[in-house]
Every structure is written in structure tokens, then in C-alpha cells.
Computed example of a mutant assay.
Amino acid sequence: MTSERAGILSMVGACTIWGSSPLYYKLLADVPPDEVLAHRTLWSLVFFAGVLIVQRRLSGVARALGDRRTALTLAFSAVMISCNWFLFIYSIQIERATEASLGYYIFPLVAVLLGVVAFGERLKRLEAAAVALAATAVALLAWREGQLPYVSLLLAGTFGFYGLAKKRIATGAVVSVTTEVTLLAPLALGWLIWLHVGQGTGIWGHDARATFLLMLSGPITAAPLILFSYASQRVALSTVGLIQYLNPTLQFLCATLVFREPFGLAQAAAFALIWTALGLYSAARFGAERKRRRASVSSVTDPQI
């Protein structure tokens, strides 16, 4: 098997786990989302730390925390990913998985806007059209529902700011996420101690099924990230971006076909606009990638360059 094919399969595996995760969190619907989040944080730390110990890279966490700028950036990204995790768990429990999938569909377009604001990037014509279509879809849902699709916007926004923070650090994916959950772990542990000792309402240890599922949150969080990290080193960025749409698509199918959430004409129109926007966005990305490759080939083959 070629390196690229292995990378594509890893990317598909990562997106399949992410996209199927609503099924897992639905099994924990009786556990409060804050408790699920705390366990997800702690068991992710256990899993990630184990991986780094095996790889003999655990010292990378100490180095990240020892650099003030990196530590502050990772503290911000930790808050963003923690909010994103909580919102996703919460959306499943309040039966808004469809909105959650919409959030991950519009995330690339939010990332484009953040690039404009943070780095002064200029929108290409197709990208501008894609953003306009996405804004139209959000306005349509807001008009139909009488309120903004806040779950979608907050998920896309927190993940967008998370990605923005990640651009500012050179730490590897596994080390950086391990550092993030390390920073969050004291809060998560303190919250669970308060639930179990102070309130007597903690689930862990009192229900075998729930206990097992909560411990499983670590591997479910860590495995796709490791697969994604492996894939991103072996597959073209444009291919990675295209395969990533498998994640919200599977979430959307879980919401509509498995959870049977309402999906009316307004939602259908909004999703059609979003899918069209993503088509335009993907076309712009593929065009940019093609130009970059041609320029790279020219620089190698042309002796005058």
C-alpha cells in the first residue's frame, strides 16, 4: 500500500469516527453534558499521555508549557476546544444534531473569514460567493425559526478560533492536544470531585454501562486525531479538505435518519445553499492548489528560475 493511499484511508477513518460520534454521545443522554465533558477531558489525557509515553515524546508537553507564548496560546485553544466539545455533546442531548452538522459544514467558511480578519487574507471571487451563500442560509434559518441557529454558529466559531490559535504554534498535533487537556484536567477533576463528594450525583462507578462509555470517550477523542495527523502528512491539503466533508455528512445522516430530527423545507433549502457554497469553496481551493503545484513544477524544471 502506498503512503498516499494509507493517508487517505486514515483520513476516511478519522472522519468516520467523528461523523459517527453522535451515536456514541446519544448513549450518554442521561449523563449531564458537563459531566460527560469532564470525563472526556480526563480520559483523553490518559490516552494521549499513554501514546506520548510509548513514543517517548512526553517531554514535549513540558517544553510547550515552559514556553510562555506557546502555553498562553494553548490555554486559549484549550478553552475553545472545550467549549466546542461541550456544545457538541449538548446539541446531541437537546436533539439538535442537525444544527451541529450544519456547524461543521460552515466551519471552513468561518475559517476563511477569520483568515481575512486575522491575517489580512483576501477573498477570491468563488470564496466570497461561498461566504455569501452561507450567510443567506443562516439568515433563512433565523427567519424560519425566529432565532439564529446558535448551535451551528457557536460550533463553527469555537472550532474556527481553535484552528486560528493552532496556526500560531509549531507544536505537533498530539503534543499540543495533550498539553491542552493537561491544562483543562484540574478543572475537570475538580468538577467531578464536587459532583461525587459535594453533590453525590456523579455517575462514574455507580452505573457499569455509563462508566464504561465515559472511559471510552478518551479513545474516541484521541484515535481520529491521531489518524488525521497521520493523513495530513501524506495527503494533499485539497484532498484532506474534501474528505473532511464526510464528517458533517455522517452527522447529518445520524440526525435525520437515526435520530429522526425534524427536517423541513427551510432546513432543506438552507442545507442546499450550504452544499452549493462548499462546492464553490472547494473549487476555489482546488484551483489554488493546482496553481501552487504548477508553480512548484516550473521552479524545478525552468533553468532560468
Rank of each mutant, 00 (worst) to 15 (best):
A223D: 04
L225M: 15
F228M: 13
T211A: 12
I203M: 09
I220G: 07
G202E: 09
F212D: 05
F228Q: 06
R209A: 13
L216R: 06
T201I: 14
F212M: 04
L225S: 13
R209S: 08
H206S: 10
L225Y: 13
L214V: 05
G205K: 13
T221V: 14
I203H: 09
F228I: 01
A223N: 00
H206T: 11
I220V: 15
S217K: 02
T221D: 14
I226M: 15
T221L: 12
Q199K: 11
G205E: 02
I226R: 10
G218W: 07
G218S: 06
Q199I: 07
S217A: 14
T211G: 09
I203R: 06
A222T: 15
L213M: 12
A208H: 06
H206L: 10
I226D: 04
A208M: 13
I203A: 10
F228Y: 14
D207K: 03
G205I: 07
D207H: 11
A222V: 15
G205R: 13
L214S: 04
T221K: 00
A210Y: 13
P219T: 04
L225P: 12
T201M: 09
T201E: 10
Q199H: 07
G218P: 13
H206Q: 12
F212C: 05
S217Y: 06
P224E: 00
F212W: 14
P224R: 03
L227D: 03
G205H: 09
D207S: 08
G202H: 07
W204M: 09
I203G: 02
I226E: 10
G205A: 08
G202A: 14
A208Q: 11
T211P: 10
P219W: 03
A210D: 15
G200L: 12
G218V: 04
P224M: 02
H206G: 06
W204R: 05
F228L: 11
L214W: 00
W204L: 12
Q199C: 02
L227Y: 01
Q199V: 05
L213G: 09
A208Y: 03
I203Y: 01
T201H: 12
D207W: 11
T201P: 04
A223E: 03
L227W: 05
A223G: 00
Q199L: 07
F212A: 13
F228D: 07
H206E: 08
I203K: 04
T211Y: 00
T221S: 15
R209I: 10
A223Q: 02
Q199G: 08
M215C: 11
P224W: 03
T211E: 10
D207N: 13
G202Y: 04
I226H: 10
D207E: 11
W204N: 03
I226K: 11
T221F: 05
T201L: 10
R209E: 13
R209M: 12
L216T: 00
S217V: 03
T211V: 00
Q199A: 06
D207T: 05
S217N: 07
H206N: 11
A210T: 14
H206K: 13
M215N: 01
L216V: 01
T201G: 06
M215R: 05
M215V: 14
P224H: 01
A223C: 01
R209W: 15
G218T: 08
G202R: 04
I226N: 09
L225V: 15
L225W: 11
H206V: 11
I203S: 11
A208N: 00
D207F: 02
A210C: 08
I203N: 01
G202S: 12
T201Y: 08
M215W: 05
L213V: 07
H206P: 01
W204T: 07
